[in-house]
Design a protein around this nucleic acid. Structure first.
Lengths: 209, 209
DNA sequence: CTAGGATTCAAACAGTCGTTTGAAACCTTT
DNA sequence: AAAGGTTTCAAACGACTGTTTGAATCCTAG
């Protein structure tokens, strides 16, 4: 492994970004804590912005592929897929990602919130592109579980994402398991009830045109 | 009005903070756009950090008092308060706050997310202190609407806050009204269903001890 | 009208930032 | 062992940051 410093930089950068924010975190701070030279970041990653992107790429790839794998096995289990399991496939990987990185629980979730809040053009675009995939797959799965059209579903899924991100950001200990169960229950009820609110006047809008 | 510049600084600072973040926004940028001298920020607000706090204080006071006022009238309307109305009292002021500041819709919500993500000790503490008030009042109201204990309710309310903040942050146009209605419906269903999940083994934990 | 506090202003302060550079050190391959 | 590419290192670069200062200006109260 030639790039042990490359990895070390990535790890400590993720930690510091989550704890202090992107702008507040210094390259000098990162390299000092990673026992690397100041120039190492520019040498291995090109620039600070590229480093930020790299930190996200690594975790989002991991998170989303895990989500899609779980979703697939849920879809294989039963043809009208079980709604609780679909939401579990979405929520659990996020929770596991938060806990497996040792120490602070909601670190990566805080990082996600940060990235989303920073609204940096490049970063936001990258994340959205990585997510559109997954979101469409889950929207389809949820709509089939509910027996409704996937059209007005993205909004409810956004509710779920917001709730997930927000609560995970400050879930510290082993209480994450319980939080996930509560969130799944909460989200399933919301989705099922919202599905009943369809049909009224939407028929002339999308079902025909 | 002696402090027209003080107000102008507050306004443009809020806008720039929301669009670019706290660290990324320069005092020179703020003062230039507010047609004020660079030293005006330090003169009127003391420091950049104090300015950030002032920006939040102003909006949070507005938001929370509006929420509590609406909650009171909901509580006056019927003794077991209506759950939909309770949630509406929580959600609508946030949405109105987002739209009334001209132009960009979710500006202040983005600001809130930012502040929350920045996790700055002082800022986070101030916001939490401002909210604990309101959260307790709404937790009580919701628990009475549901007929359950307010103990394990904070978690579900956090779900709601997360969903509200996340979706409002990118709700741009007049679609906020519809979003609010969908969110209320979503949240009510989640809360009602979660209320059914209580009672099992909690009796020996809090009800007696 | 004028004294005196409040406000604005241009200029400079010390400090930190991300990035670049060119030489040293390391490691593999011939 | 020598060559050549990869990685580390100390040092410096220019640019930008928040804050301070002291004089100029404004505004109001006596």
């Amino acid at each position: 492994m030639t790039d042990s410093t490359r990895q070390r930089i990535l790890d400590t950068a993720e930690q510091l970004f989550a704890d202090q924010g992107f702008h507040a975190t210094t390259l000098r701070q990162i390299t000092r804590e990673a026992r690397a030279n100041l120039a190492a970041v520019n040498y291995h990653h090109g620039s600070k912005d590229a480093l930020i992107l790299a930190v996200f790429q690594r975790r989002l790839d991991e998170l989303n592929s895990e989500r899609l794998a779980r979703l697939q096995s849920v879809l294989d289990a039963s043809d009208p897929p079980d709604l609780e399991n679909v939401l579990g496939a979405f929520i659990y990987p996020a929770l596991l990602l938060s806990t497996q990185s040792a120490g602070d629980g909601g670190r990566f979730m805080r990082l996600l919130m940060r990235a989303w809040a920073e609204h940096a053009t490049q970063l936001h675009g990258t994340i959205a592109r990585q997510y559109s995939h997954v979101m469409r797959a889950f929207a389809d799965a949820v709509s089939r579980a509910l027996g409704t059209s996937p059209d007005n579903l993205r909004q409810q899924l956004d509710f779920l994402i917001g709730a997930l991100t927000y609560t995970m950001a400050e879930t510290t200990d082993g209480q994450v398991e319980e939080t996930a169960r509560a969130l799944i229950r909460f989200g399933c009820a919301g989705l099922r009830d919202s599905a009943l609110a369809e049909v009224p006047q939407n028929s002339l809008k999308e079902n025909i045109a």
